[in-house]
Design a protein around this nucleic acid. Structure first.
Lengths: 240, 240
DNA sequence: CGGACGGTTGACACTAGTCAAATTGAGTGG
DNA sequence: CCACTCAATTTGACTAGTGTCAACCGTCCG
């Protein structure tokens, strides 16, 4: 089912213009940026880059879904972030040219991105002082999110964290369907466990419980949130 | 014991010049920056700002120790970071002028800082394109640290996380003493628990065990690391 | 058709949290 | 200087919440 037909550059323009980073670029500048980038196509479960590779490029996803994850020394995965089209990732080399990627970027379905050599991108930014400010703003937001999630991981029960993860995913890539809101990506129990610091068994048990109550509907790598409000209650610890 | 005598501005210069942010400022520029800032003195267990305050200033600590922490809805504290002299904190308002501080900054001993109105600081930076780049670099490093710590919290046992926290603190504010390396701040079991997502009871039990083995020496709000290598082994899960 | 993979469920173990009670130690004021 | 107070700490007893492991099922896909 490999739908790996490369998108023509013309189709990338509207995606780039949706990216927060380029919001105050003129159409002409956007085209300049676009031309400086290299399109990359990656099929499901391949990598744009892996933890430990030299951080020579930065990416903006144009199609698909990408998981940013770390592996521990004993092989456990931890998913730090899910990237959707329009979002940047792998920007570490921008400020630290000698760095290695501290995470892996794995396509969870066939995906496409634009890639820029960090040096090239740095030069593109230098002419536009607003861009580094926008970049800082994006980093600041991400820092806040990580701090919130750190606090949650440090203080909340597994059930609350999994419920939260579902709500976050729904906000980021929810799609309205008849039964409720579908989390629009392949999402196994294992993946969700790796996002929340638990095991696939615990996620499976929680899903069973919630499904019995009609809060969600699940299938193979598929979750539909039927009653978001009930998930919010679980997050707030008011469950049962 | 309040040693809250305000440091003269002259004494602040070498501290500022140590700050990573100002590393390529000329002495003249440093003085300009210094003059634009307001000195702030805070006594132990008071706050430079609290979670929820308008993020109108950013700070560089010039003396003392500051804990950045969040509280959960049910009142639990989570310590995200310890600030030592030369480090910046509270910079969120720089890119998001309308934001509220997402953390509280509490002095864990009598402390002093320089504060700048975010607008003033922004103007100082605009003349120096390198500064926003350095800021981005600092943010990138912090993001990496948070990601690492998130992974640790998600995958490691309490014992490993506490050992890691001690090693991190030793790296940041260790001071050589006869018995080993002293963590140079008031550090209660409770604080360490709030840094590692556990309880003061568990930290106390770990300390007892480690002290019996001669790995550390502890006192009231005081920890000396006697055998750092043993802590490293605990972190790596090779203990017992 | 068969294998691989995702998922479910039960039995069990164990880490680490909770609560209670006692102890230590530092700082304070008479 | 000593008694007093309060916070920090220690330790034991108990247990809830989750992880671990094993067995099994269903389904997708080659």
């Amino acid at each position: 089912m490999s739908k790996l037909s490369v998108l023509p550059k013309a189709d990338l323009l509207p995606i780039l213009s949706r990216a927060a980073l380029f919001r105050d670029f003129s159409p002409g500048e956007l085209i300049e940026v676009l031309e400086a980038g290299q399109p990359r196509c990656i099929e499901e479960s391949s990598f744009f880059f892996q933890q430990g590779d030299p951080a020579s490029r930065l990416y903006v996803l144009t199609d698909g879904r990408v998981r940013l994850s770390q592996v521990t020394v004993d092989g456990q995965q931890v998913i730090l972030r899910v990237i959707v089209p329009g979002q940047m990732f792998g920007a570490i080399g921008l400020t630290q040219p000698e760095a290695l990627y501290p995470v892996s970027a794995e396509a969870s379905e066939d995906s496409q991105a634009l890639a820029w050599e960090t040096g090239v991108f740095r030069r593109l930014c230098e002419n536009r002082p607003g861009v580094s400010f926008d970049l800082m703003g994006m980093m600041t937001s991400y820092i806040q999110e990580m701090q919130d999630r750190y606090r949650e991981l440090a203080t909340e029960r597994t059930e609350q964290r999994v419920a939260r993860a579902l709500l976050r995913l729904a906000a980021q890539l929810g799609r309205k369907v008849e039964e409720g809101v579908l989390v629009d990506m392949a999402l196994s129990r294992q993946s969700l466990a790796e996002m929340t610091g638990t095991t696939l068994y615990t996620v499976s048990r929680l899903f069973s419980k919630w499904e019995r109550r009609g809060v969600i509907q699940t299938g193979r790598e598929r979750v539909v949130i039927v009653k978001p409000h009930d998930l919010v209650q679980i997050v707030e610890g008011l469950a049962e």
